[in-house]
Design a protein around this nucleic acid. Sequence first.
DNA 1: TAGATTGTTAATCGATTAACAATC
DNA 2: TAGATTGTTAATCGATTAACAATC
Lengths: 227, 227
Amino acid sequence: MAGAREAGAAGRPARIPERTVTRLSIYLRCLEELEADGVRAISSKQLAERFGLHSAQVRKDLAYFGQFGVRGLGYYTAELKHTLERILGLKHDWHVALVGVGNLGSALLAYPGFQRRGFRLAVAFDKDPEKVGRRHGRIPVYPVEKIVPVLTRRKIRIAVLAIPAAGAQAVADQLVAAGVNAILNFAPTQLTVARGVKVQNVDLSVLLKSLAFHTNRTEPARPGPSE
Amino acid sequence: MAGAREAGAAGRPARIPERTVTRLSIYLRCLEELEADGVRAISSKQLAERFGLHSAQVRKDLAYFGQFGVRGLGYYTAELKHTLERILGLKHDWHVALVGVGNLGSALLAYPGFQRRGFRLAVAFDKDPEKVGRRHGRIPVYPVEKIVPVLTRRKIRIAVLAIPAAGAQAVADQLVAAGVNAILNFAPTQLTVARGVKVQNVDLSVLLKSLAFHTNRTEPARPGPSE
DNA sequence: TAGATTGTTAATCGATTAACAATC
DNA sequence: TAGATTGTTAATCGATTAACAATC
């Protein structure tokens, strides 16, 4: 009885480990390159090697969602890419809201790889009256008070939070009230949100501290090949 | 036989889980706030609750490095903060190199929380002759060809990579040759580096894909409390 | 002392890896 | 067919949580 069950044939939603989802995203990035290079197919072993993983890991990650490979051959590049896009929900563009048009927010608005991959920053919010009303390229900047009406009307479900820690929780509450399901949080603070809303934290300070810890425990590295 | 052994009394370096280091950074952030609020001491239970963790987790994380608590009481805020700073290697400023003065790089140069917490962006590099030679505030911008001599001379061990994927591996090679031990990598590509060099990837596209996956599997969230 | 909380060991849980029959 | 690689189950590994004696 071969069990091909996309997300559980019975109906059980099947919990997917967070790290599996992250790896699928990385596999996809790789498959885009492979397809551009004209590589027709790739095995789990070859794919795994590119990321220092084991082939079983790759096969297991994919097996959560179905059977996509060909025994004796591997996976067809174009087909697997297509499949991963479907699994990750990238078959249509996502409209994304940005809160905070400061240094980081502006950089994100200008970041091409962001928009390119199906994430379209559709609206921005800021509390500074100087910034409100203007446009950043083609993106309108509203006052933060408008979060609920604007996002509700536009049915936006993903938001990026690029403001200081102080006001972050209040804004997050607004986002959730507006029906947002997922928040990419650059504010260095722990957000409390309703169950079902996913928060992905990116705390540059925390990341740097981890690097400092590692550097602190490592020899000052040879001065390089002469110079 | 109570075993107080900082990093292994014998000399064994004791492998610390990555996630423990990340949590220590987060605890520290919290302790800074607590100290500012005049909170004298805190228990592992109280600390854990702020992050949705179990108290045993907090105690275990700390136990890797020694015994810092007081039974029946908890941990003294100021003391634990001090201790975590020492463990993470934050007792002195780190000079950090930035490669890539584009949108993201400029945002990082202007980001205050970055500099504030003991990470000083000391030098920047770019391949654009337009940008080279100028200064960003007080930070000089050199051509990327100067990475090895400049970093070697200044003994810089942490670098931030904020350039497109295409040139990232070549630049990473230069950084490693220059004696860098840790790289915060914003380029959406897998870097191959010498053992002992730590790479911390921040791929915005991957993070957004995880959010898309979650959003894709979730009901479109109630439209919020009326509006 | 009585109450509280640590530090630490043992039990549990979940994720990674090994192994192999199925099959292209 | 012979060789290769999948999909999947079982074994291993590591991290989280429970439990509790030690002790403030």
